[in-house]
């Protein structure tokens, strides 16, 4: 698909995920890149979509409580003992 034929709507709703996921054929990628470069709103959208991804990465890692494995095992053991009685 030539980038001139592609609307912003199609680009953002149908192509952006694959474009960012890296699984897209190089030729198609280049076509989409041309649209982004010629279209300020799409370029802003792309920058902020990427910024969103980077922001989400900062949520990691969830801090795991240090004694969690032991806590879980004592919990299950205690429940098992209780049920045996």
């Amino acid at each position: 698909m030539k980038h001139d034929d592609l609307t912003c709507k199609q680009l953002i709703l149908d192509c952006l995920l694959e474009f960012e996921g890296g699984a897209m054929a190089e030729e198609e990628r280049r076509e989409l890149q041309l649209h982004f470069e010629a279209c300020p709103p799409c370029m802003s959208f792309l920058s902020t979509y990427r910024a969103t991804g980077m922001t989400l990465k900062m949520l990691k890692p969830t801090e795991i409580p240090p004694a969690l494995a032991e806590t879980v095992m004592s919990f299950v053991r205690a429940r098992r003992e209780k049920e045996k009685k």
Binding site: T7, C8, K9, Q10, P40, P41, C42, M43, S44, F45, S47, T48, R50, A51
Partner: peptide
């Protein structure tokens, strides 16, 4: 026509 309906501010 498939264009954005409003401005897209770039806060990145």
């Amino acid at each position: 026509d498939g264009h954005f309906a409003a401005d897209v501010p770039d806060w990145s």
